Simulated scan of single mutants.
Amino acid sequence: MSNYRRNRIPGGTYFFTVNLQDHKSQLLVLHINELRAAVREAKQSRPFYIDAWVILPDHLHCIWTLSKHDDDYSCRWQAIKKAFSKSIPETEYRSDTNRKRHERGIWQRRFWEHTITDDRDYAAHMDYIHYNPVKHGWTKAAKDWPYSTFHQLVEKGVYPVDWAGCDMGTLNVGESME
């Protein structure tokens, strides 16, 4: 297995992008309850704090903060992907490589990670996450997308309900492979 260079800071806050292999798939929203259960299970065995999350049909973005002496976010993603994959019917295409490796062919192998560096970086990534359904044309306003922490953050007073986001095109945030 490859040893990818990842920034690891115990107790760090990280932005993630995780993609399905099939970019036309809608598995994540079709099986939202299974995804939520997989995340709950991972959090129970290896706690982490979810700062923000948005789930789109074929990918997701989130910000997590790990506990003080913990920097192992990869094991959590492995657990989430595995639990989700086991919980849904086998309907996806599987390549020869998937079959050889006994993989389902649901998730891209890697994920994109960015270590949050300061309050400005945190705020920009929070905005990016909550604006993402609008960016991809799934909705006209962040408040209309049901699979997002935006609603919880409105209740906490972090965002106004009519938040439209800033000009996301000028922000240097998000994933580089989308």
Rank of each mutant, 00 (worst) to 15 (best):
H59R: 06
A42P: 05
W77D: 02
T17V: 08
A83W: 01
A79G: 01
A79S: 13
Q26Y: 11
E34R: 08
T65A: 04
D58C: 08
L20K: 09
A42W: 04
D22T: 01
V29E: 06
S85Y: 08
W77C: 01
A38Y: 03
A37K: 10
I9G: 01
D51P: 05
L35W: 15
I63A: 03
H69T: 10
S74T: 07
Q78M: 09
D51L: 11
I80E: 07
L60A: 02
L20E: 04
W53T: 13
P10L: 02
K82C: 14
H61A: 02
A83Q: 13
G11M: 04
P47H: 04
S87P: 06
K81H: 08
F48H: 12
Y49V: 12
A79W: 05
H61N: 00
V39W: 14
H31Q: 04
L66V: 06
A42Y: 05
L27W: 02
I32M: 11
S74Q: 03
F84N: 10
V29Q: 07
T17I: 06
W77V: 00
H23V: 05
K43R: 15
H69F: 07
I63Y: 01
K86G: 07
Y73V: 02
K82I: 07
N19Y: 11
K86E: 14
Y49L: 12
I9P: 03
K24H: 15
K81A: 07
